[in-house]
């Protein structure tokens, strides 16, 4: 009796989940090996990371603080996946949202209860504005959104550098390469964790509900899975693409606004901390599930936090960026393997 591997059109959900766990484990093993090769004890370091993260409320607060933007950028990418597109530009939209929110925070005066919503709306508008060109190019001319959204990231990054180090720079005694402190701050929810965390959670649950339990969400699903099928049923695919992409940009923009108003309190170059790119990994790990976004964002936050802790041990942050890359790589490989199952070969096959 012989067996052979056969590719099935769709993986079993349980297998797909197990594959993710194995991928994360493998990434940690490879990461640990690299640490060992560089002469450090991976188990001791791991122990220290676990203790500093989960041993104190400080560690958990850090985790919450890091998870907030990751949930939102992950959500931004996941939303476009639902309609079969990739928003690689959450990074740029994050910057654009942060820039717009900072502009309001720096140059408009008013009571905090009014200014924070105003900054929120500015963040939404900034993120949407930054994805507008890729959206229209995709919807009307069929230009690949992967490339347009990616390229605009660099524009946004440099634009924020320009404002933070140029016209808006802090002329007082202070910090180099950032704007003065913005007066309007997100109130704190728990320790250092601000209300932005709650906003991220609520937005994610809301988006998941809209996508699963509305007619609009159903139409988005069909449009994403097979645009020709959507046109056959009379679903306006182009309008759905525009709405979904703008929504995605808005969510990433909110992430940028929250980072300015909740965590950094200034606009500075590099403020995104790669959150936009890490959002891609979050979305890939989460597939299309809302709960998955929380879990994947928590994992990424843990890895980033571990990087901060390990810096004190002489490891560079790029080692941690490499770890996130390994997670993505192994997941992508695993996803392909999840399609295969062992089946009993036809007995006539020699």
């Amino acid at each position: 009796m012989s067996w052979r591997l056969q590719r099935f059109p769709s993986p079993k959900p349980s297998v797909a989940l197990a594959v993710r766990a194995v991928a994360i484990l493998l990434a940690l093993v490879v990461g640990g090996l690299v640490v060992a090769v560089s002469g450090l004890n991976p188990f001791a370091l791991g122990n220290q990371v676990m203790k500093s993260t989960f041993g104190s409320s400080f560690g958990l607060e850090d985790l919450g603080l890091l998870a907030t933007p990751l949930i939102l950028t992950g959500l931004a990418v996941m939303i476009t996946r639902r309609i079969g597109l990739w928003n690689i530009g959450a990074e740029g939209q994050f910057y654009a949202g942060a820039l717009a929110a900072a502009a309001i925070g720096l140059f408009v005066e008013g009571p905090a209860w009014l200014m924070l919503p105003a900054m929120f709306l500015a963040g939404v508008a900034g993120g949407m504005a930054w994805i507008t060109i890729p959206t229209l190019a995709r919807a009307f001319v069929g230009v690949n959104e992967l490339i347009t959204t990616l390229l605009l990231n660099f524009v946004a990054t440099l634009l924020v550098y320009y404002f933070a180090t140029g016209p808006w720079r802090d002329r007082g005694a202070g910090t180099l390469g950032s704007t003065p402190r913005i007066r309007y701050e997100m109130p704190e929810l728990w320790g250092m964790v601000h209300w932005g965390f709650a906003i991220a959670v609520v937005l994610t649950v809301l988006a998941a509900a809209v996508l699963s339990f509305t007619r609009w969400g159903y139409e988005v699903r069909i449009s994403g899975a097979n645009p020709e099928n959507a046109l056959y049923a009379g679903i306006p695919v182009r309008r759905r693409i525009i709405a979904v992409m703008l929504l995605s940009g808005a969510v990433a923009g909110v992430a940028g606004m929250l980072e300015v108003a909740g965590t950094v309190h200034r606009l500075q170059g590099g403020i995104s901390n790669n959150f936009g790119y890490l959002g891609i990994i979050v979305a890939v790990l989460a597939r299309t599930s809302c709960l998955g976004v929380f879990a994947a964002a928590a994992l990424m936050a843990f890895i980033l936090n571990a990087g901060i802790i390990l810096q004190t041990q002489g490891l560079t942050t790029s080692a941690i960026v490499a770890l996130t890359g390994l997670v993505l790589l192994f997941t992508a490989i695993g996803d392909e393997f999840a399609h295969y199952r062992l089946v009993r070969a036809d007995r006539a096959t020699a």
Binding site: P9, S10, R221, I222, A225, N226, E228, N229, A230, Y232
Partner: peptide, 11 residues
């Protein structure tokens, strides 16, 4: 055009 192959039978 008649079906969205990756979606559920329900959908």
């Amino acid at each position: 055009s008649g079906l969205a192959p990756s979606l559920s039978i329900d959908d």
